[in-house]
C-alpha cells in the first residue's frame, strides 16, 4: 500500500512538473518556408530549391529556444550556359540560440544568432519576408563571415514611450571554423529609435571585426511605413574599408488590409536601387570587385494558404560586365505544432 502510494505520488509529481514545463501553451512549433527559385543571370540559368525550417520551443515564460536551418540546393549547367545540369546541396544553421527574456528591456541570448548589423540580416533575410529574392549587395558588410555569430547577445527596448521606443542590440562573437557553423571573431551592436504612430524607424550599427587586421564597419538604416498608405520603404547604408554602398527599396501593396482577399489586393509591386563603391578588396569579403549599380523591379502575388508567387527583373551595371537578371519563384510558409496532441 505504501509502495503504491509512493509510486502514485511520484507519478503525480512528474506529471505536474511536466505540465509546468511543457504545458498546453508551451507546445513547440515548427515553422518556416519552402521555396523554389529560378534565375537567369546574364544568360546562365540556375535553380534553387530551398527549405528553411524554424524550431521554436518555449520553456516557461522566460526561457526560449529557437533555431533556423537552411537547406539550399543549387542546380546549374556545368559550363555556365552550356553542358548538362548538375546540382549540389548545402545545409547551414542560421541560428540556434537559447534566450532568457528577463523583462521588456532585456533579453540575453547565447549560442548561434544572426549578426545584428543594420536590419537586412535579422529582419528581412528570410524567404517569406524579403520582397526581392536576391540579398542586397552590401549585405556582407558588418555580417562577416557568415551572417551568423557564435557567442552572446543582449537586446531589448531601453526606453518605451507611447510616441517612441529606443531599441538596442550588443553582441560578442568568437571565431568558429566548424563547417556550416562558421563565424568570425567580432563585437558590435545596433541602436534604433522607432516612432510607432508614424511607422518610422531610424538607426545605426557598428561592428569591430577582431581578426584579419581588425576592421571597422558602420552603417545606418531607416524604415518607413506610413500608417494610412500600404507603402513600405526600407533603406540601408553600410561602410567598411572593403567598400561601401546603399540600397533603397519601396514596396506597395494594392490593399491596405493585408488580409484583403480581392484579386488586386493580393498584389505587391517592389522596386529597389543599389549602389556599391569598391574599396580595398580582401579575400573572403564576399563583395563585388568593382563599383556596381543595380536596379530591380518585382511583383509578388500572395495566394491563399500562405503561398506567394514572385517574379522580378534586375539590371546590373558594372565595369566587369552588365547583366540582366530575371527571377521567378514560388514560396510556401508553414506553421504547425512540433509534436502531436491536443486540439487545434
Amino acid at each position: 500500500m505504501s509502495f503504491s502510494k509512493n509510486v502514485f505520488g511520484t507519478l503525480l509529481l512528474f506529471l505536474c512538473s511536466a505540465s509546468a514545463l511543457f504545458g498546453q501553451s508551451d507546445t513547440p512549433i515548427l515553422s518556416g518556408t519552402v521555396q523554389f527559385l529560378g534565375t537567369s543571370n546574364a544568360g546562365a540559368n540556375f535553380y534553387q530549391p530551398v527549405i528553411v525550417p524554424i524550431l521554436a520551443v518555449p520553456l516557461g515564460d522566460h526561457f526560449f529556444i529557437e533555431s533556423r536551418a537552411e537547406i539550399q540546393g543549387f542546380i546549374a549547367r556545368d559550363n555556365g550556359t552550356t553542358g548538362p545540369y548538375s546540382g549540389q546541396f548545402i545545409a547551414t544553421f542560421d541560428y540556434a540560440q537559447l534566450d532568457y527574456i528577463a523583462n521588456s528591456h532585456l533579453t540575453i541570448s547565447v549560442g548561434r544568432f544572426l549578426t545584428p548589423f543594420n536590419i537586412y540580416n535579422e529582419r528581412y533575410n528570410a524567404p517569406w519576408i524579403k520582397n526581392l529574392p536576391d540579398a542586397a549587395i552590401i549585405f556582407p558588410i558588418g555580417t562577416r563571415t557568415s551572417g551568423s555569430s557564435d557567442g552572446a547577445m543582449v537586446r531589448g527596448v531601453a526606453v518605451a514611450r507611447k510616441k517612441f521606443e529606443v531599441n538596442y542590440t550588443a553582441y560578442f562573437s568568437a571565431l568558429t571554423n566548424v563547417e556550416n557553423l562558421g563565424s568570425g571573431r567580432a563585437a558590435g551592436g545596433r541602436v534604433g529609435i522607432f516612432f510607432p504612430e508614424k511607422g518610422f524607424e531610424i538607426g545605426t550599427s557598428y561592428q569591430r571585426f577582431l581578426q584579419n587586421g581588425e576592421l571597422n564597419a558602420s552603417g545606418a538604416y531607416l524604415v518607413w511605413q506610413p500608417p494610412r498608405i500600404p507603402l513600405d520603404i526600407r533603406s540601408e547604408f553600410a561602410h567598411s574599408p572593403n567598400g561601401q554602398g546603399y540600397w533603397l527599396e519601396s514596396a506597395y501593396r494594392f490593399a491596405k488590409d493585408r488580409r484583403n482577399i480581392s484579386g488586386i489586393g493580393r498584389l505587391q509591386a517592389v522596386a529597389r536601387i543599389q549602389q556599391y563603391f569598391n574599396g580595398t578588396p580582401q579575400a573572403g569579403d564576399s563583395l563585388p570587385l568593382a563599383d556596381t549599380n543595380r536596379f530591380d523591379f518585382g511583383l509578388n502575388y500572395y495566394l491563399p494558404h500562405d503561398v506567394r508567387l514572385n517574379g522580378s527583373y534586375g539590371r546590373q551595371f558594372s565595369s566587369l560586365g552588365n547583366a540582366n537578371i530575371w527571377e521567378y519563384g514560388i514560396t510556401y510558409r508553414f506553421l504547425f505544432p512540433a509534436w502531436p496532441g491536443g486540439s487545434r
Binding site: 498546453q24 507546445t27 518555449p58 541570448s109 529582419r123 531589448g156 521606443e165 506553421l335 486540439s343
Partner: peptide, 25 residues
C-alpha cells in the same frame, strides 16, 4: 516585416509570440 499567418491555433500562439518577442523586441 510580414503578414499574420492565415491560421494559428491556441497551441501554437505562445511559441510564435515568444519568437516575436525576441525578434521584434
Amino acid at each position: 516585416c510580414h503578414n499574420a499567418p492565415e491560421a494559428i491555433s491556441p497551441r501554437e500562439v505562445k511559441a510564435v509570440l515568444q519568437h516575436m518577442r525576441v525578434r521584434a523586441m
